[in-house]
């Protein structure tokens, strides 16, 4: 059979393969992860490694169940990327068995029940995260105060990771040392107690907690992806713009915008999670709408919802809207 297709090699094609794209995104996460390890907790590495390994095994299992050859599909590294994103989204002190549940939901219910890569309507990492958030609300808000770490030996940490429930089984860890540590959680608790927010204190706390640096790391990685043209500007810009617009109009006076942008997982979400092409809208105009929706919803959830961070649910809700956005965009394009 003669070759009648486009001769990519002779044409000098330089397209990145799916695998290269996914690995580049992983590469771009490195500055953020390094900052995370330094300022928040090196345990994230344990979580990420564990999540990647179990995700790969589970994916191999799922592909075999579907009666396909697993090597070519696993090689695209998309599930490894999703696993790392999940590990970054959960608190570092999360017990591993709970992370395993999240990974299983991510791989099986988030990806393979729909037919694998390219067919899943929802962002798999966010499906896993949402399942964990609903199932284990207590440990999912278990943010480690970096100051509390000093009291813990490495052995204790590993022991803590492997036990069923960290809070009850490790009395050495002080309660107030490990909970309510992210700036967003802090603001929420202050608001709940009707206390006035002291700005300088808040900034101090943010800088101390290192979240700002972590987000700067993610921003650096995101800019790298933009520069390498692996992602396009439409989604990150519109997510942040959507958030900033509502936050500027409606949030508490006195809370600076840059603080709220850089203290949660908005940057990670805008550059790494919402840009997953499979679950985002496909056209440029659609992506702007999609990103704006995520930004707006994440503000609503942060400000008025029951959870301190809204990116995950915002992404999932906008994933729901993608077919509508795509359809509307196609109709618009046709009428132009």
């Amino acid at each position: 059979m003669a070759n009648i297709i486009v001769d990519r090699r002779a044409a000098g094609a330089k397209a990145l393969s799916t695998q290269r794209i996914m690995l580049s995104v992983v590469l771009a996460l490195i500055p953020g992860i390094v900052a995370y390890c330094y300022f928040i907790s090196p345990l994230v590495l344990v979580n990420a490694l564990f999540a990647v390994l179990t995700a790969l095994l589970l994916e191999a299992f799922a592909i075999r169940l579907r009666g396909k050859k697993c090597m070519p599909q696993i090689q695209d590294a998309s599930i490894a990327l999703a696993a790392i994103l999940l590990a970054l989204a959960v608190p570092p002190m999360i017990p591993l068995w709970q992370l395993l549940v999240g990974v299983a939901v991510m791989v099986l219910l988030g990806k393979h029940v729909y037919g694998g890569l390219g067919h899943n309507p929802f962002n798999p990492a966010m499906v896993g995260y949402a399942a964990m958030l609903i199932s284990f609300p207590q440990s999912m808000t278990l943010w480690m105060d970096p100051l509390g770490l000093e009291n813990l030996a490495l052995v204790d940490l590993i022991q803590a990771k492997l036990t069923l429930n960290i809070v009850t089984s490790n009395p050495q860890i002080a309660w107030d040392g490990i909970t309510q540590a992210t700036p967003l959680e802090h603001i929420r608790s202050l608001k709940a107690q009707s206390q006035t927010i002291v700005l300088s204190d808040l900034i101090q706390r943010t800088m101390d907690s290192g979240w700002c640096w972590v987000n700067l790391g993610f921003l650096l990685g995101g800019l790298f992806l933009l520069f390498k043209r692996i992602i396009q500007w439409h989604i990150p810009v519109s997510v942040i713009a959507g958030y900033v617009l509502w936050a500027g109009l409606f949030s508490e006076p006195g809370l600076p915008l840059h603080l709220s942008v850089f203290s949660g997982s908005l940057i990670l979400g805008a550059f790494f999670i919402a840009t997953d092409p499979v679950t985002a809208a496909s056209s440029k105009r659609g992506r702007l709408i999609f990103g704006f929706g995520i930004g707006s919803l994440s503000f609503v959830i942060r400000e008025f919802g029951g959870y301190p961070e809204g990116i995950a649910f915002a992404v999932l809700l906008m994933n729901l809207c993608v077919p509508l956005i795509d359809h509307a965009d196609r109709q618009l394009a046709r009428r132009n």
Binding site: N3, I5, A10, S17, I21, P72, L117, G118, P277
Partner: peptide, 22 residues
């Protein structure tokens, strides 16, 4: 008229809707 070496086309993977084609 071109003369090219034998070609092994890479196997197609699932579309990830990146929209680069558009």
């Amino acid at each position: 008229i071109l003369a090219e070496a034998a070609l092994c086309a890479p196997a197609a993977q699932p579309c990830i809707r990146c929209d680069d084609c558009a």
